[in-house]
Design a protein around this nucleic acid. Structure first.
Lengths: 253, 253
DNA sequence: GAGTGGTCTAGACCACCAC
DNA sequence: TGGTGGTCTAGACCACTCT
């Protein structure tokens, strides 16, 4: 393991922190099968010596993998590779595009509308803006392997003068990618509320299901890295689409 | 801030780590209103001096509060109190009982069944046991303020010889509390899958809704601290009950 | 008792942001 | 440029688990 700060001035600025590099290394260790599920990893002190880093750096790498669900540590017993079922579940923000790929499907979309609208009171309140302020509304049918699985309606609060072209969205597929790459808006947190509703006529037609079919309704407020609300989004998913998530107890170090 | 390990031999074993004590202190700082939403906290180095701890300990306290959604740090800018909306959303395991209390309601339950059953193939596979192994089945109607909001059916894999009495469950209300306090089983992680289904006749009657009403269906596999599957649970919630959760980007230190 | 993870320290330097 | 958080180190001691 190489210190990112010593002698070598040619270190590219893409250099990652040591603990991330180490985390990647450990990840490979597990994925290669050298360490099976539920089996113990080498001890922290041992890893520190092996990779020539401080024990603290080892611990940071382990904490990182623990948060990703790949590992867990038990006081006095050791650190173990997580069971396979846990490893697959993400606990983090995933765009529909990324999530679909992770599930082994091909993501797609049909853009039904993309226009500037005035905020109504409810949305204005959620996004902390004044009613009538302009928002970008995007309504899409999300596809998995070419078949409609969900209906998604976003209301975006864009920075002054920012523009998003329909063409750009069609090309990249992912709205979040566009926000990050083009506008520098980094989603950091989202607040979600999940419930069930019956499909109305319009929704039913777009999702190709019967009126009254139970749909999974998910509302979300997405916050930027400065914790400013950026998007309100309403999603309706037809069965058998499922939300999957991993929940765990807290813990710092 | 007092070191938990120095001189004073009379330190009770309930002594919490310094960083937790500090986290509690900072929490109060925010709740007392001295530091409003989005406002900057004192710098890490300053907190270290103020509370007589190392900067690393301060950082651990901050990481803890960050995971709880109370705080966030921006490189080069500072550390800020989170907006109120974020603070209320838990990202962690919460029993129905705790969650209901957090929402300001009074939790209740009606136990419909509590019996030993043989595992069927589907559940056996999820819990990593052989079919026909005995499981404890608990079916309950969950109440909020006396009104039914959800139907919950748990299948528990108990340790050899362990017993749970109906009376105990009725008294404490919370199955998870019972698992922790009586059997020493500590829930550490759960894998959830959420979707929507139509209410069948039986469910509809218990939840006091019409047949066909869209229900929020949540399946869960709960793992103990050793990552052994302990419970499979199926929950059905009637509108307007909502699952609320906070999702964030990862991050270690 | 031996080995593991958990907590804590004091100090160093880097990367980023705002003025 | 000065202040902030981010990374890293080396060493100490505690708490827990297993045998």
């Amino acid at each position: 393991m190489r210190s990112p700060t010593t002698e070598n001035a040619a270190m590219p600025k893409t250099a990652q922190p040591l603990y991330q590099q180490l985390a990647d290394t450990l990840k490979q260790l597990m994925e290669s099968g050298s360490i099976g599920a539920q089996e113990p990893m080498p001890a922290e002190r041992e890893l520190a010596i092996t990779y020539q880093v401080s024990r603290d750096t080892v611990r940071k790498a382990i904490r990182l993998l623990e948060q990703q669900g790949l590992l867990y540590s038990d006081h006095g017993r050791g650190t173990f590779a997580a069971p396979a079922a846990v490893r697959q579940m993400s606990r983090f923000l995933d765009s529909f595009t990324d999530d679909t790929i992770k599930r082994g499907g091909v993501p797609g979309q049909t853009i039904l509308a993309m226009e500037s609208v005035a905020a109504n009171m409810a949305i204005a309140s959620l996004l902390h803006i004044e009613p009538d302020e302009p928002l970008l509304r995007i309504k899409r049918v999300r596809l998995m392997n070419g078949k409609p699985v969900g209906l998604q309606e976003s209301f975006l609060r864009l920075p002054e003068g920012a523009q998003l072209e329909r063409q750009e969205l069609e090309r990249t597929g992912s709205l979040y990618r566009l926000l990050i790459d083009k506008l520098g808006i980094k989603p950091s947190e989202s607040l979600e509320s999940v419930g069930a509703v019956a499909a109305e006529a319009g929704d039913a037609a777009l999702l190709e299901v019967a009126v009254g079919t139970p749909l999974l309704l998910c509302e979300r407020v997405m916050l930027s890295d400065r914790r400013e609300p950026v998007e309100y989004c309403e999603m309706k998913y037809a069965p058998p689409y499922r939300y999957k998530t991993r929940i765990s107890k807290g813990g710092v170090n």
